[in-house]
Design a protein around this nucleic acid. Structure first.
Lengths: 284, 284
DNA sequence: CGGACTGTTGACAAACTTCAATCCGAGTGG
DNA sequence: CCACTCGGATTGAAGTTTGTCAACAGTCCG
């Protein structure tokens, strides 16, 4: 993957490379990142004077520890984070993956400690806004209040997508949905929706899909065999976007019951695709 | 279930029974409901003058239609709602159940249409706040802005609980977790955490747990056989709270791998409990 | 009473988890 | 530089859970 595909603005306002742990930025920079529609960002003067620190989080580092006292909110500027819970048995349940423009720790706003953890899957940077600053910021820059609400709203929507992934459908379908989710997200970030690099391991994918990691491997193999995608380790290329979308819509039981009766589906959803291809291999 | 167990404040500020579809209330009433800690609710004068409509939603009615244009936010005053998505195949994926004090449609704040639907599982009432009023409200009553953030934050936390329910663990464990979730929620609403009435059908439970509804039935039977709960249709009594909690912590694979190696668990988590009981039936 | 809906239970087949073996790349230390 | 280990990923084999279909009891309602 080429790391500079994004046509979006700066990755980091100032070069924060090397050993720098922390950089300085302003609320105006944050607002510029959050506002997708550039239809006049007011309060720019005010916002330009409000300092916001920009923290660098190296790959693998944990930004938010579960149970730690929560005193700040974060906005991802660059990189990818894994949001997860670790239960007493040590099992890591992944809840979401968050990228640029997404808010972290919004769920801790109403609590003293973080109910979920977040760690960086690659070298990343985040804007840090301490909770005590929140009120001042939204009073000085009303647009910020609005953007904060929107960010929270998006976080909720993002989490609701989880249900789609863990729904009671075949593992292969869950994986297809996951890939399409990533594909859409890549598109909204101005990167290729067809080819991308998975920032997370099979284990994390397994967790968010609610299956064993071996099943993820097998599902990848199945999708490749169906010629819907091409996979090489963590590099994914979607070969048949429409096919993948159609496939992702399969449900185990088309309709639980009630309403019109539909034809029962064959054993495996993919068996259908494969059979169709073996009957007409050139039509693919 | 006795409908008047709650020690909390009024269920509905004015009797909105009969055929009334809509009632009138104030922002102060809403704030009183939202603020758990009554440590001084300022702005009461202001809030008392801001009208908020209170809508009655009969059992089974849909308050929020998926895809409909979103122009308001709702706070549940009484009753229970089911939040769900209906995919093209007609399959209903339940995302959460929301009760008193919870916010509905927060996920639509950043969109023009509702990404999720909400319908009442029993006769319910909601405070309605139109999106265009939001800004005025939080300017006039700063505490409202804070409470709105908290409500959104709680909604996010509530949705994250979903992952716990749909995680890759045995169906019986998921059901145990679900019951404990409800139990906790009953407790925070001042009702008995041991005995309660399920407002939703087996089908809805199955959806949120990510299993077939027959599996829910079987899991109920299993929990009853283990003497952890007593179930009669939709009435549930938790007989062994600690046992249920211990049971809910079982994972399929105690530790995926990495770290210290633990003993492998036997086939079924409940088999363990049952065996223990058969060895020492009086100790239960 | 018939019809529709909910919930329960049984039987069977399919899908999935689990354990195990292997391959591969990255990092480490001789 | 190579052997070595470690972790990630893939694949096979076996056993179990779970989905699916079917039948049935109970309730509500027209």
């Amino acid at each position: 993957m080429n790391p500079s595909t994004s046509p979006a603005t700066c990755q980091t306002p100032r070069s924060v490379s090397g050993t720098a742990q922390c950089g300085h930025s302003t609320l105006a920079d944050l607002m510029r990142m959050l506002c997708t529609d550039t239809t006049g960002i007011p309060d720019t003067q005010q916002a330009a004077e409000m300092a916001v620190s920009l923290r660098r989080v190296p790959a693998g580092a944990t930004l938010i520890h579960m149970g730690a006292s929560s005193d700040a909110l974060y906005f991802v500027c660059s990189g990818t984070f894994k949001i997860f819970r670790t239960d007493e048995d040590g099992y890591e349940q992944v809840l979401a993956f968050a990228g640029r423009r997404e808010v972290l720790a919004f769920d801790a706003l109403c609590m003293e400690t973080h109910p979920t953890a977040a760690s960086a899957l690659e070298d990343s940077t985040v804007y840090v806004i301490r909770k005590v600053e929140l009120h001042d910021f939204s009073r000085s820059v009303p647009a910020f209040e609005h953007e904060l609400q929107r960010a929270g709203s998006r976080a909720l929507g993002r989490t609701n997508e989880l249900a789609e992934l863990m729904a009671a459908v075949a593992a292969e379908v869950r994986l297809a949905r996951f890939l399409l989710l990533l594909s859409r997200r890549m598109a909204t970030n101005g990167q290729s929706p067809r080819r991308f690099h998975l920032r997370m391991g099979r284990r994390d994918i397994a967790s968010i899909l609610g299956v064993a990691h071996e099943t993820v491997s097998r599902s990848f193999t199945a999708l490749v065999a169906a010629r819907l995608v091409h996979v090489s380790d963590r590099d994914v290329e979607i070969l048949d976007m429409d096919g993948l979308k159609a496939y992702s819509r399969s449900t185990r039981r088309a309709q639980d019951e009630g309403g019109l009766v539909r034809a029962r589906r064959p054993a495996s959803p993919l068996a259908m695709v494969q059979k169709a291809q073996s009957l007409c291999p050139l039509a693919a």
